[in-house]
Write a protein that binds this DNA or RNA. Structure first.
Length: 399
DNA sequence: AGGTATTCACATGAAACTATTCTCTGAGTTAGG
DNA sequence: TAACTCAGAGAATAGTTTCATGTGAATACCTGT
């Protein structure tokens, strides 16, 4: 098939999708299923801001894909509509703290806040307290309530500590006219435990817990979304059920389920199928998994990649191996590609990161007289290992 | 045999360092009046 | 004299290194039987 006719055919062939955006994670539906209680609670807490009174700070807990972000966005959307209708000055800022190079440090977070007020701030070069001052100035320009949503706040504190949160909670006492209300969202259920007690008490004036969805609920959610996104009759019976089952196994992660459905649809479409079948779903699961890993590794620095490559080199020969062995292999590889060799201390950290990413399985064991070390095994599929190995060879230009 | 002390091979933490990217400031230089 | 250039001081950040301290249990070493 020649390319030109390919495009022709592509156009002629009608899409399986009616509206794919419904299946993207940024989509906010008009109706949030099975979260009525939480929605109401969020609304209750935030309502005072419509009277220009400061609402209590709010904290939301729940595992990934349990509808936290969605619920908050939904409530805030409604509120903003009302605020606009009645000409109430109420500013809503949503920031995801996990985004690299956007809001993952104190400086950048405040810089991002300033940006929300329509001012630009250089990415570096300014002292942090200077940036704070600019922010205070902007905040206090007029009387209003500012609702600040910090998504994945646990990532932020894990990286740089809870000082920022302390600063943010104290802002109110410095402001004359504005009021700021913090809404924290965390995936980590024990997040607040290791927080400065002062921060903890002022941040979690109100707490709402989001339980995971069960399989049935995910099914309903998927059905709703599928109706809107796919053309009718495309999704075969059983697909949604299986998709929900996959997700329920992973602590009821609805986002993952929706993602899976979308990828399954894309795969079906690309293969020229007119319907989405279970087989596409299985393929999608593999793809999502391998994409996740490949994305995670390719965005890492060279040194990180060479450590991973070393592990992949050892893995066919042994089922489990130890830090020292990896370090040896890593050293020879570094020599081979003329890269300087990092200390074992650093490699230890890299291994811990790889463990976090779920690429390897590391467990600290003691071999008694023969020391203490990480017992490492690889935790990704053979197929992905091969693919990853090729990729790393290219990226590190080996051979 | 039973109990204690050692010892290995790292793990884990904190602080300090390095390279890079960026701003701001003020001295020196240039061009126009 | 105003405008411009350009070096140097200071910041933020990511990735490391250095130094210091921690640690679980297999083994070595006793001790008394």
């Amino acid at each position: 098939m020649k390319i030109d006719s390919f495009f022709e055919n592509y156009l002629k062939q009608d899409s399986l999708f009616k509206d794919k955006s419904v299946l993207l994670s940024s989509f906010v539906p008009e109706e949030v299923l099975y979260r009525e209680e939480q929605l109401q609670e969020v609304a209750n807490v935030l309502a005072p801001s419509l009277r220009l009174e400061k609402p209590s700070n709010l904290f939301l807990y729940g595992k990934t894909g349990s509808g936290k972000t969605l619920s908050v966005k939904h409530v805030l959307k409604m509120m903003q509509a009302v605020a606009e209708n009645n000409n109430i000055k109420c500013k809503i800022i949503y920031i995801n703290c996990k985004l690299k190079r956007v809001a993952d440090t104190e400086y950048r977070l405040v810089a991002q806040l300033i940006k929300e007020f329509g001012e630009e701030i250089p990415p570096t070069g300014l002292p942090t307290d200077e940036v704070y001052n600019i922010f205070y100035g902007l905040l206090d320009q007029q009387t209003r309530v500012v609702l600040l949503v910090l998504d994945e706040i646990d990532q932020l504190t894990k990286k740089i500590g809870d000082e920022i949160l302390y600063n943010l909670t104290r802002i109110n006492s410095e402001l004359k006219r504005s009021q700021i209300c913090l809404i924290g969202i965390s995936n980590n259920l024990v997040f607040a435990e290791n927080l400065d007690p002062r921060v903890k008490s002022s941040l979690s004036e109100e707490e709402i817990i989001f339980p995971p969805y069960n399989a049935l609920q995910i099914q309903e959610i998927l059905k709703k979304r599928a109706e809107k996104s796919f053309s009718s009759g495309v999704v075969q019976p059983g697909v949604i059920e299986k998709c929900a089952a996959y997700a329920a196994r992973e602590h009821g992660d609805a986002r993952r389920a929706i993602d899976l459905l979308r990828v399954a649809g894309e795969i079906a479409e690309r293969s020229g199928s007119k319907i989405v079948e279970i087989q596409h779903l299985d393929e999608a699961e593999k793809k999502v998994e391998s994409d996740k890993i490949i994305n995670a590794t390719t965005s890492q620095p060279k040194q990180f990649q060479s450590v991973l490559y070393s592990i992949l080199l050892i893995s066919p020969q042994k089922k489990v191996f130890f830090t020292g062995e990896i370090y040896d292999v890593y050293s020879t590889i570094c020599k081979k590609i003329k890269q300087n060799i990092l200390t074992q201390r650093r490699i230890s950290d890299v291994l811990a990161e790889l463990d976090m990413l779920g690429i390897i399985n590391a467990r600290i064991i003691s071999k008694g007289r023969y020391g203490r070390t990480r017992e490492i095994s690889i935790s990704i599929e053979e197929k992905i290992v091969v693919k990853l190995k090729e990729l790393l060879e290219k990226s590190l230009s080996i051979q």
